[in-house]
Design a protein around this nucleic acid. Sequence first.
DNA 1: TTTAAGTGCTGCGACACAAG
DNA 2: CTTGTGTCGCAGCACTTAAA
Length: 264
Amino acid sequence: MPTELVAETLLTLSIQERKVLILNHALLIDVTHIADEDLHTAYKYGKIISSIAPAYFQYQIAQDNQNLSIIELDIQSELISSKTDKFADNFIEWLKADFQKKSAILEHHPNPRNLFELCGAKLLVTSNSVTRSLSTKMGVLWEEIANISPYVIIPEFEFGIKITGIDIILFSEEQVKFAQLKTLKGTLTGSQVPRAKHELSIHQNPLFIAAFNLGDWTFNDSKIPRIAGKVFWEKIHMDYNLIENHVRNMLQKIDKAFTELAAK
DNA sequence: TTTAAGTGCTGCGACACAAG
DNA sequence: CTTGTGTCGCAGCACTTAAA
């Protein structure tokens, strides 16, 4: 068992090795003051990661400066579009498969799972699964795009570790912040809000983020700040208009593919 | 009266795990 | 090794109540 954990050693390892190392160190963290047992591991991971995060961010930022910096808008644009293009391609493939799957279900209709299947409404049943699936998958896309920034750490991508209630860790105003990243301001449904507050409140500098400044807030807490859209992306030195444009192209491409499949 | 906030309900996909 | 099942996190919508 190593005695201390520093960013420099972590950076030389594979994701899997990082995970093991962090797991081992997490065992030593005291959690007796955390009431909710379900959040014990989340608290441990938070502690470990916040201890190495400052150096980790410094490294990422230095590395970014050395290479082709994302501060260059054309480079940033290139990085974003590679994500959105890939997303569109993958999703359209999924769309085709989903249409076929739904056709098969409607032909045999063994056990209808919802009203649309029961009634053989092919386009409606597909629309239902398409919008839901699209929303969910895009949630991950925002994380991937944000991860382009050296001011961001996604624990899952970087360490292979999921922290309950934490999607993203970011460095801004000289602080390491633990946050949830959602699509819209109103993404969280009523019953999910108290849980989100609870999960965030055990970490230092919690933050609630909506990737887009759309809808109305459903998250409201006196101690946990919230930010949306451009304000967020600027904090991690990314250009909001660039992102919006690439996402617009992506969704229009997907929309077109959906229309064509529906017309068949 | 209109607007905002709070709550409960729904379905889909990813994942873990057990049963076959 | 495959298949079924349960849990969790993702999303949107309807409704009620309180505030402006």
